[in-house]
Computed example of a mutant assay.
Amino acid sequence: MSSLADLRKDYSRASLSETETAADPIDQFAIWFDEASRAQIPEPNAMSVATVGKDGRPSSRIVLIKQFDQQGFTWFTNYDSRKGIDVAENPYVALLFHWVELERQVRIEGKIERVSQEESDAYFYSRPLASQLGAIASQQSRTVESREKLEQQYETTKQQFGEHPSRPEHWGGYRVIPERIEFWQGRPSRMHDRVLYTRDASGQWQRQRLQP
């Protein structure tokens, strides 16, 4: 039986230069995201969201990004979930995209804010009806006595709201306004390429290379 310590891979698909990346990290992210999508990577929009609660303990989970632009990185969830409670107490989070097939990671750190009610409405009503009902029925992150109880909550919600549910107040979008964005490209001999963008006091992005 092989040891976990013996599991390793040498990375050699591509390289990354701080002189050849885009001056704006959002533009660079768009390039990499497009390449991940065209490579048909399963769920290239999946990202880890790490939060820290008032007890100082970190927590992470995978969510799906729904939009990114110069304003930031946006996804939607239950505001009463554990991550929602965490960010209400500590509005700084870290995001991580890991595109294994391309030997790439993108790390994003910044401050989080809720999107407008109009943005939350627009996305909620674009979702399939079953997903809308699920968002209403689930008391996310709270305990439930059984799967049968959970399905009963869904059926009750379905009977109550039918085909025209309204977005609940506890469900909506978050946007992370980035302050640091790091692009990581795997390289041979663990001499990986790392290019870090940081936003300065004037709001401009500064770019530099980090040692692996």
Results as ranks from 00 to 15, higher is better:
Thr77Lys: 04
Thr77Leu: 03
Asn78Tyr: 01
Tyr79Gly: 03
Tyr79Phe: 12
Arg82Phe: 11
Lys83Ser: 06
Ile85Val: 13
Ile85Asp: 13
Ile85Leu: 12
Asp86Ile: 12
Asp86Met: 09
Val87Cys: 00
Ala88Val: 00
Glu89Phe: 07
Glu89Leu: 09
Asn90Tyr: 10
Pro91Met: 00
Tyr92Ser: 09
Val93Ile: 13
Val93Pro: 00
Ala94Met: 07
Ala94Leu: 07
Leu95Gly: 07
Leu95Pro: 08
Leu95Met: 13
Leu95Asp: 05
Leu96Ser: 12
Leu96Gln: 12
Leu96Ile: 07
Phe97Val: 10
His98Asp: 10
Val100Phe: 15
Glu101Asn: 15
Glu103Ala: 11
Gln105Ile: 12
Val106Ser: 12
Val106Leu: 14
Ile108Tyr: 04
Ile108Met: 11
Gly110Pro: 03
Gly110Met: 03
Lys111Trp: 01
Ile112Tyr: 01
Glu113Val: 06
Glu113Tyr: 02
Arg114Met: 10
Arg114Ser: 10
Gln117Ser: 10
Gln117Phe: 04
Glu118Ile: 05
Glu119Gln: 15
Glu119Phe: 02
Glu119Gly: 09
Ala122Asp: 08
Ala122Trp: 01
Tyr123Leu: 10
Tyr123His: 13
Tyr125Phe: 10
Tyr125Ile: 02
Tyr125Thr: 01
Tyr125Gly: 00
Tyr125Leu: 06
Ser126Ala: 11
Ser126Cys: 04
Ser126Val: 03
Ser126Glu: 09
Arg127Glu: 02
Ala130Tyr: 06
Ala130Ile: 05
Ala130Glu: 12
Gln132Gly: 00
Gly134Ser: 15
Ala135Tyr: 11
Ala135Gly: 14
Ile136Lys: 09
Ala137Pro: 06
Ser138Gln: 13
Gln139Asn: 11
Gln140Ser: 09
Gln140Pro: 07
Arg142Pro: 00
Thr143Tyr: 12
Glu145Trp: 02
Glu145Leu: 10
Glu145Pro: 12
Ser146Thr: 14
Ser146Val: 12
Ser146Glu: 14
Glu148Tyr: 13
Glu148Asn: 12
Glu148Arg: 15
Leu150Thr: 13
Leu150Asn: 05
Glu151Met: 12
Glu151Asn: 10
Gln153Lys: 14
Gln153Asn: 12
Glu155Trp: 06
Glu155Tyr: 06
Glu155Thr: 09
Glu155Ile: 03
Glu155Cys: 03
Thr156Trp: 02
Thr156Glu: 13
Thr157Phe: 03
Thr157Glu: 01
Thr157Asn: 03
Lys158Gln: 15
Lys158Arg: 15
Lys158Val: 05
Gln159Pro: 04
Gln159Glu: 15
Gln159Trp: 00
Gln160Phe: 05
Gln160Leu: 14
Gln160Arg: 13
Gln160Ala: 15
Gln160Pro: 04
Gly162Arg: 10
Gly162Glu: 06
Glu163Arg: 03
His164Asp: 07
His164Phe: 05
His164Leu: 04
His164Lys: 13
Pro165Cys: 07
Ser166Met: 08
Ser166Trp: 00
Arg167Lys: 09
